[in-house]
Amino acid sequence: MDQLAFIADILLPALWGGLLVTLQLIAAAAPFGVLIGAGIAVGRVYGSRPVQYFSRAYVAFFKGCPLLLLLFILYFGLPSAGISLSPFTASVLGFIFCNSAYDSEYIRGAIKSIREGQFTAGLALGMTRGQVIRNVILPQALRRAIPGLVNEFVYLIKYSSLAYMITVIELTGAGKMVATRYFTYNETFLVIGLVYLSLVTVTTIGAHLLERRVAVPGMASGRH
């Protein structure tokens, strides 16, 4: 009974504030992750040599560098170069870099799965390369990339907890403070875990709905 009172009166109110910060982190990072990821993917497939080279280096660096280290670089490292970011901004930037690198891999795979003939056909119809990519290739590729992008979104939810390591008091941080103060590590982290599990579950269900909503009838993947 004591534990229930602790959870209801102390833990949940504290977690609520943290949850809002976590949601803000995700909402700020996810759209740019997809947008930049799409840009990097297009650059890797259709770009000139230097663009391809840059995109590959971008992906290699941000996939290979641990996210926590990236956050340290942005938050503790950049001030020595004269750029001071707030913990929140540094976190969002780090998430965008990391997320876009992984997103670009899924989008690149999806672009490559679109038949080359479509590109030629678009050009034959008088479209420019940019127009073909924007109006023919990407609308199909992005739909096909949805399952992979959802995967990355789920990772983003979970890895947003790392923002706590550079002092952002989000869900994990808010819980850690309560746990340390009241010495209730098991209860606190299990409750936090359940919150993350619900976020992940809701996302997965939402993603299925989205996928069905944007599906074009008769265009099941792997047929074109």
Binding site: K158, S161, L162, N186, F189, G193, Y196
Partner: peptide
């Protein structure tokens, strides 16, 4: 459980709890 929880939360849960 282990795929749905952030690694950081798992580490805190096991190490401190």
């Amino acid at each position: 459980f282990f795929r749905g929880l952030p690694l950081l939360v798992l580490l805190f849960l096991f190490y401190f709890g």
